[in-house]
């Protein structure tokens, strides 16, 4: 394992990216899909509004993007901090 300060920095970077991803995760589902739907109702989508689209499709598409982005990002910083699997 790398020395202590480098592994602390690696973990801090991981926590930071997890926090960013989970904020987006919450905004698209609980935000756009449920709580903010009344605000989004001015934007029409196919016979209904944007909030409905986020609740039934949009949030799922964003979830997929988030997981792939996280996997790509982490696999990159694993190498940067020298903690990847050789």
């Amino acid at each position: 394992m790398a020395d202590n300060s480098s592994s602390n920095a690696y973990w801090a970077a991981n926590i930071r990216i997890i926090t960013i991803c989970l904020v987006i995760w919450a905004v698209v589902s609980y935000g756009f899909g449920i709580l903010l739907r009344p605000l989004l109702s001015v934007i029409p989508v196919g016979g209904t509004d944007l909030g409905f689209w986020f609740a039934q499709q949009g949030s799922i598409l964003v979830f997929i993007a988030l997981i792939f982005y996280y996997a790509w990002y982490m696999n990159r910083i694993d190498r940067e901090y020298g903690v990847d699997e050789q």
Partner: peptide, 12 residues
């Protein structure tokens, strides 16, 4: 829609 978001959001 809760089922759609709930059963996929868990994977994140």
């Amino acid at each position: 829609s809760t089922y759609l978001m709930g059963w996929t959001g868990g994977y994140v």
